[in-house]
């Protein structure tokens, strides 16, 4: 163990972390974004990206009908082309978990996990008791993954141990029934140093995945932020031998954006992270663009949004 679980050791570990070279991180992320991925590599990247998508709907206006049609899309993203892989997961609010799980099981999507956003998503402004209940409720409904938000207010005001304990408690509830993704909401953390600190804090507390954003705050999954987080999981693996996943979410809308993310993964964490088990992309609009690019590669001519489903 790199910390003994006490507040002192956590504080010491986090304050000993080296600061992020802001200019260097932005330059490196910018440089990697210029790489051109074509033909067979592009085809591979598109299929990999599709299988990494956490197909998401987190709207106040969500209905069981919308969630069900999303499930159908998750299993078979392009009904005209059976070679398209299923997506990585479905991501919904708590009350939709049961509907999603039942629907997926009924239409041949048993292997697709359902992720629930819990702990008073997206703000995280609720008492610990409510957050615990929220999480338990999602697991009872059949969630395979829990996307929890950290208390950014506590983090920014220096109450790191409180955030740490909160993640630990939620992790305990998840047990081996659900994977835990910890949402840092990097847009509210402001600095790369904070992103690095929060990444380590979440990993030390037991996160299986660290996730950039709720998708409700801009900026969300910017390339330098994802780079900093990928570096953190890579270094954490060297330190402990444990592989933690990364999930950028928010603002990734085009195939180009998605492929840029894959390049970041390959060049930072390495090939072993290029799997849906360790890298996910939280998105809704992205999937249609991936499908259209796939059609373009297959047919040789530019595709139209009229030929993919709206939701």
């Amino acid at each position: 163990m790199i910390i003994d679980g006490s507040e002192t050791s956590l504080r010491k570990f986090l304050s000993d972390l080296p600061p992020v070279d802001q200019v260097g991180a932005e330059a490196r992320a910018g440089m990697l974004a210029t790489r051109s991925i074509k033909t067979t590599s592009k085809a591979w990247a598109i299929d990999m990206a599709i299988s990494m998508v956490d197909l998401t709907t987190l709207e106040g206006a969500d209905t069981p009908g919308k969630v069900k049609s999303l499930c159908a899309k998750a299993v078979r993203p392009d009904p005209n082309d059976l070679t398209v892989p299923s997506v990585g997961a479905i991501c919904v609010y708590n009350d939709m978990v049961k509907i999603a799980r039942t629907e997926l099981d009924a239409i041949g999507g048993e292997s697709i996990p359902v992720a629930a956003v819990a702990t008073a998503f997206p703000s995280g402004r609720a008492s610990l008791a409510v957050k615990k209940l929220d999480t338990q409720d999602a697991i009872d409904a059949g969630a395979n993954e829990i996307d929890m938000v950290i208390d950014r207010g506590a983090f920014l005001s220096g109450q790191l141990y409180q955030v740490f304990e909160e993640i630990q408690v939620i992790k305990q509830i998840c047990g081996d029934k659900a994977h835990l993704k910890v949402i840092l909401d990097t847009g509210e953390l402001v600095t790369y140093d904070n992103v690095r600190k929060a990444s380590y804090l979440a990993m030390l507390a037991g996160a299986d995945f660290i996730k950039t954003s709720t998708g409700k705050v801009a900026p969300a999954a910017t390339a330098p932020v994802v780079l900093v987080m990928l570096e953190a999981v890579r270094d954490y693996f060297t330190l402990t031998g444990k592989k933690i996943g990364v999930k950028p979410a928010g603002g990734i809308r085009t195939t180009k954006d998605a492929i840029k993310q894959l390049v970041l993964v390959k060049e930072t964490a390495g090939d072993q992270w290029l799997t849906p088990d360790l890298f996910r992309i939280g998105a809704s609009a992205l999937l249609n663009d991936l499908l259209m690019q796939r059609m373009k590669l297959r047919t040789g001519h530019y595709a139209s949004a009229n030929y993919v489903t709206v939701d």
Binding site: G300, H301, Y302, A303, S304, A305, N306, Y307
Partner: peptide
């Protein structure tokens, strides 16, 4: 030719 085949 690209205009002709563009589905959009």
């Amino acid at each position: 030719p690209w205009v002709g085949s563009h589905m959009e």
